[in-house]
Amino acid sequence: MTSIHARSWSSSMLASLAVMASSIAAGCGGPDVDSQPTDGAASDHPRVALIMKSLANEFFSTMADGAQQHQREHAERYELVVNGIKDERDLSRQVALVEEMVAAGVDAIVIAPADSKALVPALRRARDAGIVVVNIDNRLDKEVLEQEGIAIPFVGPDNRNGALAVAKSLEGKLATGDAIAVLEGIRTSFNGTQRRLGFEEAASGAGWEIVDSQSAQWEMSKANTIASSMLREHPEIKAILAANDSMALGAVAAAKATGRGGDLLIVGFDNISAVQDAIKEGRVLATADQHGDQLAVFGIEHALTLLDDPEAKVEDRETPVDVVTAETLR
């Protein structure tokens, strides 16, 4: 990444152009242009690198905004470098970003890993270089961490409990034995799996029958196609539980198209702004707010604590998840 330090408008523009050109030349596998330098480069402050997944995803851009807001308010405590990858599945680019940040000599890395296993070796090298590493959003795999012989603290919400809580908002609206369907995220994603498990736990607890469960890859249009098919194949479905809000909105459109707009119950996860309108209109019943804007901040604060006190115990920290319904939005 070329534009780590503050520089004049024109030269960073040139850098962006160069980055874009190289990204096109590399067949769209190049770096993201979302590198945001912070101003005021007093060198005695610790430098924290925030490495995100795709900054084109609302969830992560909100998270980055929250972190930058926090840095502006605490400019005397640390400097912040924010980087994201272009595509959530672009693992190799994220590994390269970690290496670049190590080479740039940052003091701490706060990372939302695009993959819970593949990033571990790169993060171990960062740790070997004496850098504090904090894991946010997507939890790194325990076994791989053990194999690599390192402990990295995780700061973030419990997605499984969050999904369980969202699903519980259906209680009282569904009867025992009622049919429900699940729209899963990408199967290799830890968060996606946790949310599915949370939904399943709620279903088995309340005695609902999951008649269909498919992955719609987190995407609205795919969810629309799949939910339409589910509703045709199983007209008895009374509720659709989607592992994120984009897929919930896709299910809303499917319900409308299959004439189920009035009675089908839909829940999502993430509390993106678009879903709030759908909740107010009664098309979506509930979603989960994991306070995305604060997630990176929690991670950064944890990293700063570890920097201040190298002897501090490395431990995980759970952040809150709240259920959002028409009631809470009022």
Partner: peptide, 23 residues
């Protein structure tokens, strides 16, 4: 291929990377 990148970037820019719910 260039336009593929430019238009996608434009879409993120215009929407601030947020899904717009129109209703």
């Amino acid at each position: 291929l260039g336009m593929l990148e430019i238009a996608r970037g434009g879409a993120y820019l215009i929407t601030d990377s947020r899904t717009k719910y129109i209703g």
